[in-house]
Design a protein around this nucleic acid. Structure first.
Lengths: 137, 137
DNA sequence: TTTATACTATAGTCAAACGCTATAGATTAG
DNA sequence: CTAATCTATAGCGTTTGACTATAGTATAAA
């Protein structure tokens, strides 16, 4: 029931990139220092975020990473979905065939509704909103 | 991000008990057959649910288990909270001290809001509602 | 054209959690 | 007193999570 550190660290990295948007490529090394997260771990998180087109990278010296879209066009919901591999309270929501009781299951609908409620909140939070509203909003 | 089988099986057991409420003590053996969940595993789930006063048990021959309150007085949210050990997307919500960034964390508030949204849904579902509304409501 | 800097890819390690099973014991109706 | 039933605790095998290590590939700049 907990979000993985993947999602939490990934979101922090994306917020860090958002705070340095328009400053050119940001090196992982620096994100690592500021956020106190291992370089190797961040490198791993970047891969799926690039595939999802949220980050673009520049190789070689002076290279680095930057948001592929402006901070107001990326939501935390999207980030979590990419890093968590889908947000769902139960795998029977995506894959009804994992359970032979699907047809008459009393609980499935509820898990789905609860998932959606959470989802909605996360989707309403763009990176720029997060930065502007701050922590104690 | 998935609910554990503990919560899902536990909820199914509670729904089963609700469907046999007022029939006297129900034996785990029978719940096990109907729900296709191991007896030993169910026995384990009953313990915390008894402590939380959702189930009461009768020992000896003809003994068994039954809801400690009517089905309309128990919500799925309560069951999940007991079996999951709290529903929270991040442990920093219950225990701010796990992270030294709490004071200026941009994400904590969002995890909390999303948690509450999910929570609200689960709390609105009583066992009797679940049974009456069925699966395809 | 070399070299240092930075990103990329894949595999490995360690510990904790999960899902489940087994054993032994306590209680009580009949 | 005994069989049916619940109770408690410990164990076990697998999976997942959170990292870490190694061996690259690309490229700006000297």
């Amino acid at each position: 029931m907990k979000l993985s550190t993947r999602s939490r660290y990934g979101t922090r990295m994306m917020l860090d990139l958002a705070q340095h948007y328009d400053e050119g490529p940001v090196q992982i090394r620096n994100v690592s220092k500021r956020e106190n997260i291992s370089v190797k771990y961040l490198e791993q998180l970047i891969i799926p975020l690039k595939k999802a087109n949220f980050i673009k990278s520049v190789r070689g010296p002076k290279g680095g990473h930057m948001l592929a879209k402006p901070p107001e066009a990326i939501t935390v919901g999207e980030i979590v979905r990419v890093l968590e591999g889908g947000i769902n309270l139960s795998s029977c929501i995506e894959n009804p065939e994992v359970c032979d009781r699907t047809s008459d299951c009393l609980t499935r609908g509820l898990w789905e509704e609860a998932t959606k409620a959470m989802y909605k909140k996360l989707n309403s939070a763009t990176l720029s909103k997060m930065i502007n509203e701050g922590s104690n909003s």
